[in-house]
Design a protein around this nucleic acid. Structure first.
Lengths: 339, 339
DNA sequence: GTTAGCACTCAGTTTGAACGAGTGCTAACA
DNA sequence: TGTTAGCACTCGTTCAAACTGAGTGCTAAC
């Protein structure tokens, strides 16, 4: 469809525009890249490329800018051609500790690692876990008659809350309570626990406070279980890009990044390993000159998404590499956890 | 020093500038506020106020802007006069759950509450706790041969990490280990524990993994103990202020908010309950047109700081009120915790 | 002490000219 | 037939000059 030379010129334009954020003119191409033809010829080719929808002109005396269609072509090729060649990155493993970590911690570190490496905005989505069941409930003694109530689910999620119990309850007593609570609740779904405890009227006393604690944690868990959670990091990095030199635009972008709902709408609907959505494809006017790359991580029925948002003019190859690397680390981490 | 009318005019100017961010002219004063004299008279008074250092003129044909000295006068009066009149705010209590919470969670909620109410940037500093000692170590059973190691200090700080132990260890066995670990380490300072465990060579096996876990947590705690932690929230709110319409300035501001070191330098040196530092008084050029208000919270030897940063043109009264309200809630929370 | 009037100042905006990067077209060339 | 040099043309950008208007300071009268 596109002959060799057109394709090469288009690639040069994309490359240059990604680097400089300035519309690319015909002479720039001949100066910087060795095509072997004169600017006039480049102009003819560019004119064709524009007619084909791969280039756009901000105004008649400016250079050309890649269109969404051009990025799409570029990215599709990138993914088709280079998917296997993304190398391991040992350093990436190290951004998670060698100890196992809780899922939320891992997600947060992943988000940090992503935005540190890409200098853009990173997203991490942890999937909902509707079937979550309680595995353990345990009271850990704290000073001054308090205790930490810890709830663990079969999927390894952990939540805790501090309770006032009674200073007369020694560690063994707390452990006895823990065992019987675990016996009572273990294997139940958090929703069932919520229902079981909703019946209890609040009647004071240490027991009641413990049950209230269980209910609180069950509520938290249930909320978590029923909806996907999203971590965002580095949203302010958008200010580093000249396309967001306007504070109004930057604020619009940030407000999208703060709206869990809009983010989920963005992220949700995709099933392939790598998804790239460019400009309008995101169907959110506030970020219509951005691109979002997402990759999956996880194993079996437990998987989430890693994502990076930046200007449509982003270094796709490098960003995809970073994402797949971190995704692999996350997957390994969770496989280890499952094992 | 300042006669009644001058003082009133100065207050009007401050009030108007806080509202509008636009230099205030003499006619604006007569139009909006009922002083009972003509613009010409106001001009004379403003001229005097400028000579006294309370007003500044961005340029000769602009209105006047309050100087740092003016804000200082205003704020000092505010604090001297109104410190007792800050009311309770029941709603503020509710932003912390009725259950006791871990200190970090409380700090984070406080930061959130502050920036939600002030629409500026909030800071919460938790003080270092050099004398922190271990109270409890406990292993909570997790699915698939894992266990959550929980460490609690006498000050109520909690840290945990996931370990692979052995699937042959049942809850009772884990509890037995927990008890003996607690016996061994309880009452020791985290630094001592670090030293005790540094001697152990890593030799594999479940025991070793547990001890490695203890060491990891002790390291974390020690780091926390030796240095103050700062939570920042709502830094991006700075974009809402016209004085930060310039992206460069906004970036400079955000970079300060990300630098723990610079923040600590800002916050550190103060001993009174409320501290207000205006403009240059902050001695950081990036934020020389901001003000920082900090108030203490906590009881006895355990206290931290709540702070709000915004443009020097901020609603001081309201912001101080919000800060003191939240500070009171935090203090109550921690007193309850101690009791 | 207060005020009306007036000249003056100066940032911000508008206007228009010069500039220059870049294009499209045409004609010549290989 | 594809390539290239040349040239007219477009249009955003830049810069300076002119204009506008908000606001002041000063003076003289009340």
């Amino acid at each position: 469809m596109l002959d060799e030379r057109k394709r090469q010129i288009l690639d040069f334009i994309i490359q240059d525009y990604v680097d400089t954020a300035v519309p690319v003119g015909s002479r720039t191409i001949t100066r910087k890249y060795n095509v072997g033809v004169s600017p006039a010829t480049i102009r003819n080719e560019m004119s064709d490329l524009e007619a084909l929808g791969y280039l756009e002109q901000p105004h008649v005396s400016a250079g050309r800018v890649p269109s969404v269609k051009a990025y799409r072509l570029y990215v599709d090729d990138l993914i088709a051609g280079g998917a296997e060649s993304f190398p391991r990155d040992e350093e990436a493993r190290d951004c998670f500790s060698r100890f196992l970590v809780q899922q939320e911690d891992a997600a947060q570190s992943a988000a940090q690692a992503l935005c540190e490496r890409t200098r853009m905005t990173s997203l991490v989505m942890m999937p909902s876990q509707p079937g979550m069941r309680i595995a353990t409930l345990q009271l850990v003694p704290m000073p001054r008659g308090a205790a930490l109530l810890v709830m663990v689910t079969d999927s390894g999620m952990v939540r805790d809350t501090v309770l006032h119990v009674s200073s007369r309850l020694d560690p063994d007593a707390l452990y006895a309570i823990s065992r019987s609570m675990t016996e009572a609740f273990s294997g139940q779904s958090v929703q069932t626990v919520q229902r079981m405890l909703a019946a209890y009227a609040s009647q004071g006393g240490a027991e009641q406070r413990v049950l209230d604690g269980v209910r609180t944690l069950a509520d938290q868990m249930a909320r978590q279980a029923s909806e996907d959670t999203v971590f965002v990091d580095g949203a302010h990095n958008i200010l580093n890009f000249p396309e967001y030199a306007d504070v109004q635009k930057a604020r619009a972008f940030l407000s999208v990044m703060e709206s869990r709902k809009r983010l989920l709408d963005l992220i949700r609907e995709d099933s392939s390993f790598i998804t790239v959505r460019i400009g309008d494809e995101l169907s959110l006017p506030e970020i219509s000159d951005c691109s979002l790359i997402t990759v999956r991580f996880g194993v079996g029925d437990y998987h989430g998404l890693l994502g990076v948002i930046g200007p449509a003019r982003m270094p796709y190859r490098q960003t995809i590499r970073t994402l797949t690397t971190i995704s692999r680390s996350m997957t390994e981490l969770f496989s280890a956890q499952q094992a």
